[in-house]
Design a binder for these strands. Structure first.
Lengths: 296, 296
DNA sequence: CCATATACCTGACTTTAGTCAGGCATGTGA
DNA sequence: TCACATGCCTGACTAAAGTCAGGTATATGG
């Protein structure tokens, strides 16, 4: 734990949450209790399902119900059955009335004004610097909120990642990518104790993955390391790779290896900088041009 | 109002205050009401005067009293007369007991842990980037919180600024600075309608100043533009200058002028870039090497 | 069809936060 | 010395936030 860095983060938290956060609430509230204002805001002009609101705002079911009743009796919101045909009959959707939409627009305007009240005192060039730095902080905070953990390869989110991975490489390989021509990976190989599939999530949305297969009497094999481009460039690939290596190392494997395509230049750079050395082919993967190994 | 910039600020506010702010509160509270935890934190290991706590936390006098009673009855705090000899007998100081200090240390540790929980998932280089960007955001937010407004030149904060200004230039001029040798400025000249003294404050602490004297039948004269080095490089000088020009322009003056020393290179650069042109000497100021004028 | 889970709801409740009026002791300017 | 301001306090109050224990209607798996 680096004391300097920690102190800097704490200073930042203090300044930003006290000044920006508190003031923002003030702008939001406009006479109404903050919880109501936030709820109204979160419902938004397109409406939202009650369950979604509950998780997004982290509210108790009963409390949320009561807040909705209040907004309803103020004529700002109507709550009715979800309009999606064949939907779950228990689910209900909250929608803004005309008055509610007007109120929402007012909140939107005030949020704009608040943002502008931060920018207005600055010169144009300082405004630019502030916004750039804010975007950087935001992206890196996002990266730090990513959670990496094991996940069954059959999980829909895992499947979604693998599909995204296949789409990505199909676009980048010289001759496209046909999974049928590639060496197959069975789900069972990526379930402990045979191996593991790691899923990276941001707010429980999948944003990356990676897998390792613990070959008996051979180096472990790393597969399917993929990072969504929404969080690319933030070190997530390295993190996943590191977790996979750790998984293998903790179970007694002393080396990991992998194959990759010559077009995946950032991946290759990542492997090299993570201590991988190029080795002769250890398999007949149709799409591979480079084979790497690392001693753990 | 630039829509792009505003949107960026709003995204930032949303992400950062929701995640960092809310989580931070959680770390702070540890079972205790947030207001109590914050108060305990603010008292700190060295104790604090009740009045200071009131302004720092922005609490109602009665409310703060009650919070202190609660902490007192929990054995965390003692409130006694201010220990400073010959102090104001009404003022009281809150001090942490041993238990209170332990609690404070616990909060401190948790704050460290929280900060580290943000940094930990990142690689070393991303940590560096995050901290750098955070510092930039913090500094620029600070700049945007600076309030510039008229202030009587006899106000202690104004005096403090002018003293700091004199110290600064004494250090930078080739032959030091003796106010007695410089052209005198009378307070009356910097009080409306003769002129104005502007004070820049951050959290009501003075961080800069500037003055303009509205000479009858002559260009207005700008004096004593100074910015504390805690907020230097953030465009505050330009802002003060601009406000002074506006003051003169609004009252019918069509030109402003000023004199300056050759060693104040940033100031000279500021004047030039703000549209000032060098003119022949218009006074016999002992310490001046350059004279500037700007048509409003 | 039944047992069980889930989504949302209501009623009853507690805690926290915050406000307001007034009171006492101390300080300050005339 | 007096009137008035100020710092801190207490009592009485309100509103907001949040919790908990059920209750009803709708799914879901066998």
């Amino acid at each position: 734990m680096d004391v300097e860095l920690i102190a800097a983060v704490r200073r930042f938290n203090r300044t930003v949450t006290q000044r920006v956060g508190a003031l923002d609430d003030g702008y939001m509230a406009r006479g109404r209790p903050l919880a109501q204002a936030r709820l109204l805001w979160e419902i938004g002009p397109d409406g939202a399902e009650v369950a979604a609101l509950r998780t997004r705002l982290g509210l108790d079911s009963g409390y949320l119900s009561r807040l909705l009743r209040t907004l309803e009796s103020d004529g700002l919101v109507t709550v009715g059955p979800a309009d999606r045909a064949a939907g779950d009959g228990r689910v209900r959707t909250a929608t803004l009335t005309a008055a509610g939409r007007a109120e929402w627009t007012e909140l939107d305007t005030r949020s704009d004004e608040f943002a502008w009240s931060i920018l207005a005192p600055l010169t144009a060039s300082h405004r630019g610097r502030l916004v750039t730095a804010m975007a950087e902080v935001e992206r890196l905070l996002m990266a730090s909120m990513v959670v990496v953990g094991p996940c069954p390869p059959a999980d829909p989110r895992a499947r979604a990642c693998v599909r995204a991975y296949a789409r990505d490489i199909a676009r980048r390989f010289d001759d496209g990518y046909d999974p049928a021509l590639s060496r197959p990976v069975r789900d069972d190989d990526l379930v402990p104790p045979a191996g593991v599939f790691l899923l990276a999530t941001l707010d429980s949305e999948p944003v990356g993955c990676g897998a390792v297969k613990l070959h008996p009497d051979a180096p472990a094999e790393i597969k399917r390391v993929w990072v969504s481009d929404t969080v690319r460039g933030l070190g997530l690939g390295r993190r996943i790779l590191h977790e996979l290596e750790r998984y293998a190392a903790e179970r007694g494997w002393t080396a990991v290896r992998l194959d990759t395509n010559r077009n995946l230049t950032e991946a290759i750079a990542l492997y090299r900088s993570a201590g991988y050395r190029e080795i002769p082919p250890f398999n007949d993967e149709r799409y591979a041009h480079h084979w790497f190994e690392k001693t753990l």
